[in-house]
């Protein structure tokens, strides 16, 4: 016990990653168990087509959950992502159907419009909740309504349709049976993982989630980091809007109702603490898979809609309870 600075030479990034790796292993096991269960009880589950389906179906939630992870890590929450996605989709839908553009320009315009809309909404969330130190729960609840209203206003509550063919192509393109839109989401996960683990920015987000005051007194602008986290979340809502449009080839102002709750569930099931400071985006990836596999598998085994909803709720509660014990034993 009196030994000073016990030898220790490995460039070990942080015990964080070790701990979160263990934690992710736990979530991974749960996912594996689900997959095993459905493989045994339905003949269609483990087929190439169905795997493609699952990947397509979790993509939007995964994209939203990646951004949500940033916000929850700093101890915030963003309830507006579903509405912001719809707003971004409608704005992009208006842009893509503007007359006088070739397909390539129209698509580029739509992508820019969707991401800018998302970024703007996220930034507003961040600036207001960080500047006045207000609970993000209520600010983003306001934004939930603003963005939904804006989506309906801009679209006049009409479904926008007839997008360029190339856009639709992108939405349904596959590489070896893996949807390209899913690869986009996976790329976002990897970027987020890198940012959170290997950059000063990521380190300080964890720091803010754990002890905002200590980070502030160490001379960092907590304000801008918070704004950045919410902006990232808005950005992913914009990306989700593009995925939505490419996949369904329409923009609907009533898209994404309740999506925020699914995204939050994916993050929490993935082991990120709602009070911030602890968690990982790899966990979020696994959490999104658990939700997606459950939604898919329960339909395949023919469970009724209502039972399906109940079981999804049970899984969320079980995940949080398990996480409580995981955190308790990890800290001993």
């Amino acid at each position: 016990m009196t030994t000073q600075a016990l030898s220790e030479t490995m460039p070990n990034p942080s015990r964080f990653s070790v701990r979160s790796a263990l934690q992710n292993a736990g979530i991974g096991l749960a996912l594996l168990a689900l997959i095993l269960f459905f493989s045994v009880f339905t003949e269609h589950f483990l087929t190439p087509n169905n795997i493609t389906n699952i990947l397509t179906q979790i993509t939007i939630n995964l994209v939203l959950a990646v951004g949500m992870t940033f916000v929850i890590l700093i101890g915030g929450i963003d309830l507006s992502v579903g509405s912001v996605m719809a707003f971004a989709a409608v704005v992009a839908g208006k842009a893509i159907t503007l007359p006088g553009f070739g397909p390539a320009e129209a698509i580029a315009l739509a992508v820019v419009a969707a991401t800018l809309t998302g970024v703007a909404c996220g930034m507003i969330n961040g600036v207001i909740s960080a500047y006045w130190a207000l609970p993000s729960f209520i600010i983003t609840l306001g934004m939930l309504n603003i963005a939904r209203g804006a989506a309906l206003q801009v679209s006049d509550a009409q479904t926008i349709y007839s997008f360029p063919y190339a856009f639709e192509e992108f939405g349904s393109a596959m590489i070896y049976g893996v949807p390209v839109v899913f690869l986009v989401a996976l790329f976002l996960v990897l970027v987020a993982w890198f940012v959170l683990n290997f950059t000063v920015f990521g380190r300080l987000l964890y720091g803010i989630g754990n002890n905002e005051e200590a980070v502030r007194l160490a001379g960092h602008s907590v304000y801008w980091y918070k704004v950045a986290a919410f902006t990232i979340c808005g950005f992913t809502a914009g990306i989700a809007a593009i995925v939505y449009m490419a996949r369904l080839n329409i923009s609907s102002p009533i898209a994404g109702i309740g999506f925020e709750l699914n995204a939050i569930a994916a993050v929490i099931i993935g082991g990120t603490s709602l009070s911030g400071g602890r968690g990982s985006v790899i966990g979020t990836l696994l959490g999104a898979f658990i939700i997606g596999v459950l939604a898919n598998g329960l339909i395949l085994i023919g469970l009724s809609d209502f039972m399906r909803q109940m079981i999804t709720g049970v899984v969320i509660i079980v995940a949080v309870v398990l996480d409580y014990y995981r955190a308790k034993y990890a800290s001993k």
Partner: peptide, 28 residues
């Protein structure tokens, strides 16, 4: 409450006020 981020590693706490010294263009 103000000095440390208890959950985070010793190394991370020590560099908290000096991130520039332990990073290059934003990378740790």
């Amino acid at each position: 409450d103000e000095g440390l981020i208890l959950e985070m590693p010793i190394a991370a706490n020590m560099s908290l006020a000096n991130m520039r010294a332990v990073s290059r263009s934003g990378l740790l």
